[in-house]
Nucleic acid binder design. Structure first.
Length: 263
DNA sequence: AAATGACTCAACCGCGATTCG
DNA sequence: TCGAATCGCGGTTGAGTCATT
């Protein structure tokens, strides 16, 4: 349907005049309601093309140029955690677009990965590819007014009984859709760093958990965003000596940095 | 200098999710 | 509740550029 509608609209590279029209339109009407943008701006472009051009190129907060080492470090870690969820990853790397990060990964990083894996001829089977996927929490997951998780206690009890303290278990989501096991996997992933975070994070207002950093939110994407916000304090970014390998990744308990790079 | 291959990145496409009437 | 419209995402493509022969 959208394809039919796009017949007759201009495609391909954007001209400076088109950029100017789009920029002016966004300045006047704001971001969003993309279906109205072609009409408002006078552009002979589909709304998808307009949106993409704005998000990936015209947005004023976009940073151009090569990724810094810190950005690459962060990208590797976020990709390990989130998989190919580029929009989520981009949300954690200021100024970089999902498209840029995706392009970077698909060219530089995939190439490096191939070069490292090739000599070993690592066999990758379908079942060995693990990709975390944020999903909605079940309605069974109930939080009280303090944000304390209630309905998943049974799960935690059973898993702690069988626990072998094996970190790998924390990194293995179930393949089934929407199961309690999956919910438990996300809970475990987040819980893994909770204790350390409570030590590391100083809330501006000193309220700690009551702010709902971990327990008060039901949306996994929101939890992950909060996690990334607080797990990597901005003041550490500003420190020239700050080093992910030594200072953050290991103490968050998400595995060995070198192993991740070698993967 | 020309041909060819490799690489980069902007843009397109299809589809699932969400919103709206 | 349902279907249409819209949004937003990830995978993919292809034009332009650079490096090599």
């Amino acid at each position: 349907m959208e394809r039919a509608k796009s017949l007759g609209v201009r495609k391909g590279a954007w001209s400076k005049e088109e950029d100017a029209l789009l920029r002016k339109c966004v300045q006047q009407f704001g971001v969003g309601r993309w279906h109205l943008v072609p009409l408002r701006s006078g552009l002979n472009r589909c709304r998808k093309s307009c949106r993409l051009r704005w998000l990936n190129y015209l947005r004023p907060d976009i940073r151009r140029g090569n990724l810094t080492r810190d950005e690459i470090d962060l990208l590797i870690r976020l990709h390990k955690l989130l998989g190919n969820r580029w929009s989520l990853i981009a949300g954690r790397i200021p100024g970089r677009t999902a498209n840029d990060l995706k392009n970077f990964w698909n060219t530089r990083m995939e190439k490096k990965s191939r070069e490292k894996v090739q000599p070993i001829q690592k066999a990758i089977t379908k079942t060995s590819i693990l990709r975390p996927r944020p999903r909605n929490f079940s309605k069974l997951m109930v939080h009280d007014h303090h944000g304390t998780r209630l309905a998943t206690d049974d799960f935690h009890q059973s898993t702690s009984d069988n626990s072998t303290n094996d970190n790998d278990n924390k990194l293995l989501p179930s393949s089934s859709q929407g199961s309690d096991e999956d919910i438990g996997w996300w809970s475990n992933l987040l819980d893994a760093s909770e204790d350390q975070l409570e030590k590391d994070i100083t809330f501006a207002d000193g309220k700690g958990e009551e702010e709902g950093l971990w327990m008060g939110q039901k949306n996994p994407a929101g939890l992950l965003n909060d996690w990334a916000d607080h797990a990597i304090p901005a003041n550490e970014f500003a420190d020239d000596d700050f080093n992910f390998e030594d200072d953050v990744w290991e103490r968050l308990g998400f595995g060995n940095y070198d192993a991740i790079l070698q993967y």
